[in-house]
Design a protein around this nucleic acid. Structure first.
Lengths: 330, 330
DNA sequence: CTGTTAGCGCCTTCAT
DNA sequence: ATGAAGGCGCTAACAG
């Protein structure tokens, strides 16, 4: 910066001001400075600038499972929105571990990110957000919504979507449904279970004839499904996430039940390229990319106006009814 | 930091030294400082530290297409390796655009990342790496390998894998193959095409009976495939990436050719959960996660020893032979 | 319209 | 074994 100033015959202060457009400067000198910058190949040091302004022009994102396609999509959406605003994205993955989540949070905060987007880990510690309660750094909770937290949040309408899905199954004649629910500490999954229970009640289905399988391990899922199919006359299976769907489909295959004719099947989130996946699976599609975009928008809004009440945004999910729930007959 | 120093009754200099373990300090005072840090809830400012040391403890990653599953896996691998080293990941997506790539590069460099991992965009400008030629910031080129660039690189053994694949098809009786190649400015795809040409030569296949379809648009792919199937008696189709495979499979479906019995099919990179995808597709699996991990390792090595000659690492791909190339008969 | 100067929070000689 | 002091590169009063 000193070099530029010297070459242009001005003070570094002027250089700073032409760079930031932060005060009027004579077009003549302005030109000279620009030329000097060009010739010098000078680039502003974003870090020093951030230290001085205590604003880093960056936002941090912590996802709970970078391997899941839905989260990969959210990362994609966040990256897009962040880049569009000229910010930089700092990415971390907690891999569903409370320790890694805590460490990532500290690290990003130490880097003075201007905002933080967090999809909490399944095992997330209740105290992990304490250091953010003062609102110094805007936080938005992504995907996994915690009712009582005083933060902005973005998720999907899990409860209603599950209801629509089960209504559809009920209309097709299904009376006994098995839900592969996984780790129900995850609010997203708990909401979907709650939606299922809503449906059971509303549709007058017999609660004792339904099965909620709250495990994640494939072998356990298979055992539970086997039991449900044989002893509870379950005719439809609903998986609450992509990895659970994979485990369930493998289990059904091992149990020699054909998806479609033998047992109806539906899933949340689903697989990439659903039109190429056979059989075509009835799927509740999460607007993962848009959720990422929305999260960034909320951060931006919060940076403008920090004392508005926290807001929870739930995006609509698209329910695609396909083959896997069409070929079964009572 | 001043607060901590005051509370412990020492100078900030001592605080700095206990924090960094950068010189011997009396266990007594050391304790006092630690306690003061605890009570104050003091955290080091990573940015100020980076400015002073001109080392940011972060690495930048630019991918060319965050939507492709293979790149999502690489991001995952890079994130993992970076976190394991206690560094922070800055992520950007060029979306195959030279401008966005250039912008991302500048932005990350301005943030003084300690190393940079780049999967170049298809349209990448030849000059984009010029500012890195001096070696001040270690760079590793990921996935898309450029022969003549004097940088560390990590990719896959595309040429040999393609050869194995085509040998397999040839052994099954195929003599005319269509390759859906997409944008062959992408070195990865060009290498796979080269591997195909190697195979044609080595196996004595008639070059005029092969089709290389170097477009990405689905309608164009369908038209070209239609022509190749009818007028060139093509019996096997090979797609060189996941999106190309999706387009090709849709095209074949539109042309009413059954994958397997009517026409053999193989793809690179493939779809998630291949065991659930029907028909099971013969696939050359890229070790995308490991490529990401390896890229970080190379950055780390380069930071130790900057004057070793640049190295190109090619990881082996796993070729899984499955149904889609098993059911066809001459 | 422009320059001088005092920090931002930290590390690191140089003294003691 | 510890402190004092000078910057890292930058911005933002405060002066002219």
């Amino acid at each position: 910066m000193v070099d530029v100033a010297k070459l242009a015959g001005v003070s570094i202060s002027t250089v700073s001001h032409v760079l930031n457009g932060t005060r009027r400067v004579n077009p003549q000198t302005r030109r000279r400075v620009m030329k000097a910058i060009e010739e010098t190949g000078y680039r502003q040091d974003a870090l020093a600038r951030a230290v001085r302004r205590s604003k880093s022009e960056s936002i941090g994102l912590i996802v709970s499972d970078a391997g899941e396609p839905a989260f990969a999509e959210m990362v994609h959406g966040v990256e897009n929105a962040v880049a569009k605003r000229g910010l930089t994205l700092l990415l971390a993955n907690s891999a569903e571990s409370a320790e890694r989540e805590e460490a990532a949070l500290r690290s990003l905060l130490d880097r003075r990110v201007d905002g933080l987007i967090l999809a909490r880990a399944a095992a997330s510690a209740p105290t992990v957000l304490d250091r953010l309660r003062d609102g110094a750094t805007p936080l938005v909770l992504l995907d996994r919504i915690y009712q009582d937290e005083p933060f902005d949040q973005v998720g999907a309408q899990n409860r209603q979507s599950t209801l629509s899905l089960v209504e559809h199954l009920h209309a097709a004649g299904h009376r006994c449904v098995a839900v592969v629910a996984g780790d129900t500490r995850v609010p997203t999954l708990a909401e979907r279970v709650a939606g299922f229970e809503d449906a059971v009640r509303l549709l007058g289905m017999d609660p004792t004839m339904q099965a909620t399988i709250a495990v994640s391990d494939e072998a356990e899922i298979q055992a539970a499904l086997s039991h449900a199919l044989r002893h509870q006359q379950v005719t439809a299976v609903v998986a609450l996430s992509t990895p659970l769907a994979a485990a369930a489909l493998r289990s059904l295959s091992a149990l020699e039940r054909n998806v479609g004719p033998d047992v109806a099947f539906a899933t949340f989130d689903g697989f990439a390229y659903p039109d190429l996946f056979h059989p075509h699976l009835t799927t509740v599609h999460q607007p993962a990319f848009d959720m990422g975009v929305a999260a960034v928008a909320m951060i931006a809004a919060r940076m403008e106006n920090s004392d508005a009440p926290p807001q929870t945004l739930r995006l609509r999910q698209h329910v695609a009814f396909r083959e896997s729930t069409a070929d079964w007959a009572p």
